[in-house]
């Protein structure tokens, strides 16, 4: 059986079983490796994607539940040539070291700013409270989100 998923605006097909976590389908079937495994238990946030605009942990979400959903990954946010304001802000703040948590953080931040474009520092920190970073880029990430919140938004 083939499942159809709408990822980053494109409908893609996978032969994965319906109970397969989205994470493996994104990474291995669609070569969208910007979504990362960190814990497999929803504790770290590295695998966060947006499903119909809401942050979801791809390591815990079976693909069978997503056939009618719009999925957005970090690759769908923007590219190096055409970065989303959040990605441009992350570069401006040099807001990453190893870069493992970055994608999940940025898509979660997109969900926040879509809901609350003028999010305060405290709101940004709360929204990212369950995204772990081990390198200590936290404050730069917060600055990047605040910077993007002030930037002209892409529709």
């Amino acid at each position: 059986m083939v499942l159809r998923l709408n990822v980053n605006g494109t409908v893609r097909e996978t032969a994965a079983a319906a109970d397969t976590p989205l994470l493996y389908v994104l990474r291995n079937d669609f070569a969208l490796t910007g979504t990362k495994f960190g814990c497999g238990a929803g504790e770290c946030g590295a695998c966060t994607v947006l499903v119909d605009g809401r942050p979801l942990r791809a390591c815990r979400t079976p693909v069978g539940e997503l056939t009618n959903a719009r999925i957005l990954t970090i690759e769908g946010l923007g590219s190096a040539a055409h970065p989303h304001p959040l990605q441009a802000a992350a570069l401006a703040e040099q807001a990453a070291q190893c870069g493992w948590c970055t994608g999940g953080m940025l898509v979660a931040a997109k969900a926040l700013l879509d809901r609350n474009p003028k999010a305060t520092e405290s709101e940004v920190r709360t929204a990212l409270a369950d995204h772990l970073c081990r390198c200590g880029s936290h404050n730069r990430i917060v600055r990047a989100v605040l910077r993007a919140g002030r930037a002209p938004r892409r529709t």
Binding site: T33, G34, K36, I74, P83, A90, A96, G99
Partner: peptide
């Protein structure tokens, strides 16, 4: 600016796990 960051903020970076 860090040369590795454009790929890291866009999901294009290839880590050993990728």
């Amino acid at each position: 600016p860090r040369r590795d960051l454009p790929a890291k903020v866009t999901g294009a970076a290839r880590f050993v796990q990728d």
